[in-house]
Design a protein around this nucleic acid. Structure first.
Lengths: 135, 135
DNA sequence: TTATTTATCAGTAATCATTCCTATTAAGCA
DNA sequence: TGCTTAATAGGAATGATTACTGATAAATAA
């Protein structure tokens, strides 16, 4: 007796998120898997994204242009978000010393579940496009 | 000739954001200033929040329960976000060494505009509430 | 001060991401 | 093979944010 059943569509979502580095949003996941599963519903995509997050199999990266973005790679690493085109890049891990997190946790009385470091700016492609436009 | 005029409501919004540590969202700003300016419009709140962000006078902190949250204190510091009640706390600054940011910037070709470190978990009040519920 | 220009605003409609609802399907187990 | 119920499709509902339009008021000059 297990209260979580296997689901081909959910498995496909997890596989898709694990195989890409573009940190897609719900709409992107929906459109890509719709090709393989023509009867896929957008509600199913959202439900399974939440389901996978709750089980810790994927992570929310942040919202870009009002859309939540997801990451199937859950090993510790940082992210760069391009404010121009919305691209999200993986960066090497940057976390504070465990002592820093413990210190502020004790000082402020919170229980830390996780932490992330996010860099914002303009990505390589957008910098290049700007350079071409401004001679 | 200046293309930015002073506005009592915009000034009041900036003053409110600078005077509080709760990192309010648009709705909170609207409800608080509605007391002082009964004819305040929600559209004005959103327009001015974007306006102040573009001028670098306030910062977006992140979305909590689907609502964008804002910070009027723009000196470098980190944030803690409570996944239970949505509270956002200010933490001391924690940034990587400038060399780290420059190194990854060169490596990945991006121009960094800013970076932030976010800790998520359960805040002191919610930990206490949980302790009371579970004897 | 008065006139002119136009940034700002109130009010409301529209947009869009996300969630909720209900009947239906199918995964796991006996 | 049935039974139970998690998972689903489809669509309606929600809610934050934006867009639109006519009115208002801040800066500047006459």
């Amino acid at each position: 007796m297990n209260n979580v059943r296997t689901s081909k569509k959910r498995d496909a979502m997890l596989a898709l998120l694990r195989s890409t580095h573009c940190h897609p949003g719900a709409d992107r996941v929906y459109r890509e898997l719709k090709l393989q599963y023509p009867d896929l519903s957008l509600g199913t995509v959202y439900r399974n994204l939440n389901h996978l997050c709750q089980r810790g199999l994927i992570r929310r990266v942040g919202t870009v242009d009002g859309q939540e973005r997801y990451d199937g790679v859950i090993t510790p690493h940082s992210h760069f978000i391009c404010d121009r085109c919305g691209a999200i890049l993986d960066l090497p891990e940057h976390s504070p010393g465990r002592d820093w997190l413990e210190d502020v946790g004790v000082q402020y009385g919170f229980q830390a579940e996780g932490c992330e470091f996010i860099v914002r700016g303009v990505c390589r492609d957008c910098v290049g496009a700007q350079a071409e436009a401004d001679p």
